[in-house]
Design a protein around this nucleic acid. Structure first.
Lengths: 191, 191
DNA sequence: CGGATGTGTTGTCATATCTCAATATTTGAA
DNA sequence: TTCAAATATTGAGATATGACAACACATCCG
């Protein structure tokens, strides 16, 4: 199943068969179960996660206890708290498992060993970092739009998430309550 | 004045005097005047910008004509449309000059020549990219908070911008109208 | 099977923020 | 200095969304 990762790498850089074979050793494989936490608020995020199977969610809990979803991750997606990793500061995020499955995790130290071993992977990593930056940028624009447009854009961009996730999780990603989302959907269905 | 850039680089990586001397040639210096556009919506963003002096603003205009500010940049800050640069797709952003001054600009091609010439600059660039990713991440969390907290956080994090910018620009960054910001400020002042 | 838990809908009312309009204040350039 | 443009404030009413509560299903698991 780790092939999902090597495929992802090969989409961006070229590797020899021997290099491909050396990659898995740098990662830890973790079977995940629903409700499991990969990161808890207050901890320093030590890993980059790569989802092999299942669905994870990165969210923060605000003062009123409301959960704001930052990102979902499904098969083939990376997920981490960049700010916590980079500055080694306690994370504001929780990362938990919505759908059981399997993930890969790698520490910063291992990642750098991997870069030394296989420089092409460093190029891959930087490409991924840039793409994730572009995605964050889109998310910022997204959050400035009215709720109904956010919902439409979400459905268009991530149809597979829309059907896979419970509505209240989608609402928490859109930045609205589940009740408001229910009413938005109703309104759209009518028209 | 280009020393602002080399200082920024030297904060993160080590360079020899000769290397420092080779850097300016890769950049174009542009004197900016108020109202000038560095990037217009619909164009493909070809440059990374580095502000030497003055203040720039990156914003998008929504369907209703409202301007949403994505980012301000002052002395020593980088600014670009990552998504447009990376995917070579038309930008949704405008970048214009609020305060006259001077900027450096560099194309992707020149940047890669610079990386080949001075590999340490590539490391600097990746550090900057990561930090900017962390900043984008914070901005996403920021946008999910209520307006009054967004304003407080803005003032705390960027006190020098709060005083330097007209209020309606700050409002457009916070994602509220200038009237709402005026009222928020009034409310805070009273308490 | 049956209850606990998770999920989704609907009603009512509260609240934050917006829109539009009028007016005040500051700033910059001729 | 003086006028025009830019900026900021205030009021009144509209609108989007939230908060809370009740209820309806579905689903999972003992």
């Amino acid at each position: 199943m780790i092939q999902l990762l090597t495929d992802s790498i090969l989409q961006h850089v070229a590797l020899t068969e021997e290099e491909i074979a050396r990659i898995p050793a740098y990662f830890e494989t973790v079977k995940t179960h629903r409700g499991q936490f990969l990161l808890r608020e207050g901890e320093i995020c030590r890993y980059e996660f790569f989802v092999l199977k299942g669905c994870c969610r990165q969210y923060e809990t605000d003062d009123a206890g409301k959960e704001n979803v930052f990102q979902f991750s499904v098969e083939g997606w990376w997920m981490t708290d960049l700010d916590s990793m980079l500055h080694e500061r306690p994370s504001v995020f929780n990362i938990d498992v919505l759908e059981a499955g399997e993930i890969l995790q790698i520490t910063k130290a291992q990642l750098h060993l991997l870069f030394q071993d296989i420089p092409a992977v460093e190029r891959y990593y930087h490409i991924i970092t840039q793409r994730s930056g572009a995605a964050l940028q889109r998310r910022i624009l997204f959050l400035q739009k009215p709720a109904i447009e956010r919902y439409r854009e979400f459905v268009t961009r991530y149809p597979f998430l829309e059907t896979r996730l419970p509505q209240h999780q989608v609402a928490a990603y859109l930045g609205i309550t589940k009740e408001s989302l229910s009413r938005l959907r109703h309104k759209i269905a009518r028209s």
